[in-house]
Amino acid sequence: MRHIISILIENESGALSRVAGLFSARGYNIESLTVAPTQDESLSRMTLVTLGSDEVIEQITKQLNKLIDVVKLIDITAHEHIQRELMLVKVLSVDNAARQEVMRLVDIFRGRTIDVSPTTFVIEVTGEKSKLDAFLGSLESGSIIEVVRSGVTGVMRGERGLTL
């Protein structure tokens, strides 16, 4: 099963490689990994998407907790939660009809056009993984120049948060 693990980790050099190294050394899957500092500059927040049986996920959370730099973590998929991913897509689109069609899709998916040239668009779409996949699927396949996805981030619903 797919799990989203949110981690608060010391904002120290090498902290990211401890997490990444743990996953490769123990043969765990990483679907995506995002990391950035939090409002508390001494901490980074990491969101890690992984696949595994309940036993594997239990080991992953225990092994992560064992890393000295990991302050706190939670498997947000075990709770009511919201997940989002940001995607930038550069589309080649020359003739008028095709450009109209791209604009229509952006509208349907509540995306934004953030850069335009005579032959291209850069489109920003945010949402769950499945929505981004669906957007890519609806574009004419030959028209995509590049796709950049941020990886998944997420938070729990309600008052509960991953804080110190």
């Binding site: 036993e55 239990e58 080991q59 225990k62 092994q63 907790n65 064992k66």
Partner: peptide, 11 residues
């Protein structure tokens, strides 16, 4: 003493 040792290979 190590939670990660528990149920690592044997439940």
């Amino acid at each position: 003493i190590d939670p990660a040792s528990i149920s690592k290979t044997v439940r």
